[in-house]
Amino acid sequence: MSEAPDEGAATRDDDAQRRLVRERYADIATDDSRSGCCDGTDESDDGCCDDSIGTDSEQLGYSSDDTESVADGADLGLGCGNPKAIADLEAGETVLDLGSGAGFDCFLAAEEVGAEGRVIGVDMTPEMVEKARDNVAKNDAPNVEFRLGEIEHLPVADECVDVVISNCVINLSPAKGQVFAEAFRALVPGGRLAVSDVVLTASLPDSVRRDPDSLTACIAGASTVETIEQLLADAGFVDIEIAPKDDSAAFISEWDDQRDLSEYVVAATIEARRPTTE
């Protein structure tokens, strides 16, 4: 993989960046046509599966059992991987999902941790939180709750969760170092981070880097592997492992009709651990 400068969205005002992201995902949350149509069953020309931000979940690494176990309305096809697959969740654990959207990964995590476990989803978009809360009853998941908040300022106590997961959301933040610091704060000693996200592999053209749609579609805010490793280490994490997924080019190349974005970013799994003693 070639090295590339970490350009991301550094020149964009942070508040404006958050507003763009919030507006985009509010529109997605309130678009009823998206519910269930990105599960590989809708082949219409005008459905949400043709939106550059939606991806068939089985392409992302979810099994058919995963997609069938969650009620319609939670899986919006917005991720770039399957964090549950790398989280090694155990019964009774508490899980925190950063940028939880309509709750798909939260409900899958709830199945893994069981009735004695707990899952907390945090999202900054009120419409998404409302949609996710509606989905709690649909999925009979009393051990799942959703909170409105920014991932840079998590609405959780110190050392209260065993695992932090996230799916293609941290790249959207203009303050990724603060996100990792907050995740570290929320984890118990020995707790772990299991994230699916995109990483930058080549310098983005200005036309992509400054395009609001590219930002909200998980492209313009991506950072290099080296930058993410440094940010995680600065936050205090150890056992950092970032593994790019070359096969993700198959779905990333479909995210934009005008250019092949797989030339610039690749999906990756990001794992790290808070030390047991500090």
Rank of each mutant, 00 (worst) to 15 (best):
D46H: 09
K84G: 15
F184V: 06
K245S: 11
G8W: 00
D123T: 10
E23A: 14
A29T: 14
S173L: 01
I120P: 06
N135D: 05
A109S: 14
D256Y: 00
L76W: 11
T277E: 07
K84P: 07
V199M: 01
G221H: 02
R22H: 08
L231R: 13
T224L: 00
L89W: 05
G61N: 07
E229F: 11
C49K: 10
R210C: 14
I252K: 01
P189W: 09
A183E: 01
V70E: 01
P155W: 03
T41C: 05
D260R: 04
H153K: 14
L187P: 04
L200T: 00
E93I: 06
W255N: 08
V70P: 05
D260H: 03
I228A: 02
D162P: 06
S253P: 05
P244K: 06
S69D: 08
T67Y: 08
C49E: 12
S33D: 14
F146Q: 02
A115D: 15
D246V: 08
E152W: 11
R209I: 00
D13Q: 12
G121Y: 02
D75V: 09
D75W: 07
I165H: 01
D197K: 05
Y264E: 00
R147A: 05
S203M: 11
L60D: 10
R192H: 06
G190D: 05
D211T: 06
